[in-house]
């Protein structure tokens, strides 16, 4: 077999999956004849996988307050945020006047909406790795996430509304594991359902609506779980889907 010259740059591009398919096959064939380089390429791929395993959990972490716009900055207050900070002070005062229990519950569910919106913003644009376990292994997905959250989960089926299940992933939540299920319609528009456990079981709350950085969220607490449905769709459309999710979980 005649030797096809392979450059170091091509080997790097092969690690990153950026070679055209035909050339990738030639490089594979070449690597079969060059075991030392093949080992090197395998090691580089493991490096990338290890990097993602080590640092990807940061994507789902709640942001520290100092990285939220509207918060006093370490080096001087940004003028454009002064008005927001003032508003936050006022609403903080109003919150203080509410009954402590109501305030605590509201804070808990607002936090739910925020982390769900961030998780949506991070994973819904993902092309290569939108979910950890795909819809083709739905039974496994439900078993796995139920086991990690320590509570039996149900995955709503939304095909009747035009959304098919893409799959799901495990996320680190504040008090333990949380789950995210992703759906998409024929146009590729994605919705995510974020589920996490709550401190104590309780009767269902009303749907609440929030907008976090362009992401609309309907969220509610029900039994031992908190749910948040996020999407970049209109409020009406999202409410229609949230209603269907709620009905399927509480038949």
């Amino acid at each position: 077999m005649s030797e096809i010259p392979v450059t170091e740059s091509e080997l790097q591009a092969h690690v990153d999956g950026r070679l055209p398919a035909g050339r990738a096959a030639e490089v594979e064939a070449w690597l079969a004849q060059h075991p030392e380089d093949a080992q090197r390429i395998t090691a580089y791929r493991r490096q990338d996988a290890a990097l993602r395993a080590a640092f990807d959990p940061l994507l789902a972490e709640a942001l520290p307050p100092r990285l939220h716009p509207g918060v006093r900055k370490r080096t001087g207050l940004l003028r454009r945020y002064a008005a927001v900070a003032a508003l936050m002070a006022i609403s903080g005062f109003a919150g203080w006047q509410l009954h402590a229990l109501v305030a605590a519950e509201r804070a808990q569910s607002q936090h739910l909406a925020r982390v769900a919106a961030v998780a949506h913003a991070v994973y819904s644009p993902e092309v290569r790795h939108p979910v950890e376990v795909g819809a083709d292994q739905e039974a496994h997905l439900v078993r796995w996430l139920s086991k990690r959250l320590g509570v039996g989960l149900k995955v709503p089926h939304l095909a009747g509304l035009g959304y098919s299940l893409v799959g799901g992933r495990l996320l680190p939540g504040e008090r333990g594991p949380a789950a995210q299920f992703m759906y998409q319609d024929v146009k590729g528009q994605r919705l995510t359902l974020y589920v996490r456990t709550t401190v104590e079981a309780r009767a269902p709350t009303a749907f609440r609506y929030a907008q976090e950085n362009g992401v609309s969220v309907f969220y509610w607490l029900d039994g031992r779980l908190g749910y948040a449905l996020s999407g970049e769709t209109g409020r009406e459309e999202l409410l229609r889907v949230a209603d269907a999710v709620y009905r399927q979980i509480n038949p």
Binding site: A54, F55, D56, L58, R80, A121, V122
Partner: peptide, 21 residues
């Protein structure tokens, strides 16, 4: 300005991941 902050917001988790590593 609000639009910019809102759009920038979605990249903060990625900036953190990179900065941490």
């Amino acid at each position: 300005s609000g639009d910019f902050s809102r759009q920038a917001m979605q990249y903060i988790p990625r900036l953190r991941r990179y900065a941490r590593a």
